[in-house]
Amino acid sequence: MSSMSRRRLIIAAGSIAAATSVSSRAAFAQATAQAPAGPFKVDPLPYPTSALEPHIDAKTMEIHHDKHHQAYVTNLNGFAKDHPEIAAKPITEVLASLNSVPEAIRTGVRNNMGGHANHTMFWQIMGPNGGKPDGEVLAAIDRDLGGMEKLQADFNAAGGRVFGSGWVFVTVAKDGKLALETRPNQDSPIMDGKRALLGNDVWEHAYYLTYQNRRPDYLKAWWNTVNWKAIADRYAAAKAGTLGV
């Protein structure tokens, strides 16, 4: 067993044990260990949890990736047991046509598949030594968003205005046009037929251990974690129509 899948089993067993009486704990843990993980999975972080310090602390990265993102995926796999069709199409297609998901699981799929898509993007567009925007992406930012300085000011203001949990995104249309947008909870631009070029998580879990109530400080510091190489790749893929989540 890989260390990743072993860690996942430990998490799954732990969360079930917390909600279960002592007497049935062992039986549950065993059943979990034998059950297939399901079609959805969390990719390992592409860098160490400490790689984004001091802007995002290692503990936050660990809980955020291993617990929060994992919980969305665990819930999704739960839905897929009775509704395997949600795993038969690409995530982008399911999210773009939520009305065709059975009503009984529609809100659950919206929340948890949205959460899976958003966090998968999030880990990818961050990283150490993220460089600077250049080339086509920078040209698009200058053209559509008034340049980097204005983008950062507007993005931080929009993220600060999200009341409750949600995300702030730079979305990209198929023609390469960029726009600044926010969404509540785990909604994704994919649900509106768009793609996130990049986005920042403004759920309190994303910053509370380091920044507590100071979301504006988190939004400002977060730009130091952005991986512009990954974003350039996403931009090219978006224009080619091949960008996934």
């Binding site: 909600a19 617990k67 929060h68 949990s165 509370y208 251990l209």
Partner: peptide, 16 residues
């Protein structure tokens, strides 16, 4: 149940 109510003490474990 905003995360600010419990994140310092319980992290992601809202049920606890």
């Amino acid at each position: 149940v905003w995360e600010h109510s419990y994140y310092i003490d319980y992290r992601n474990r809202r049920p606890d």
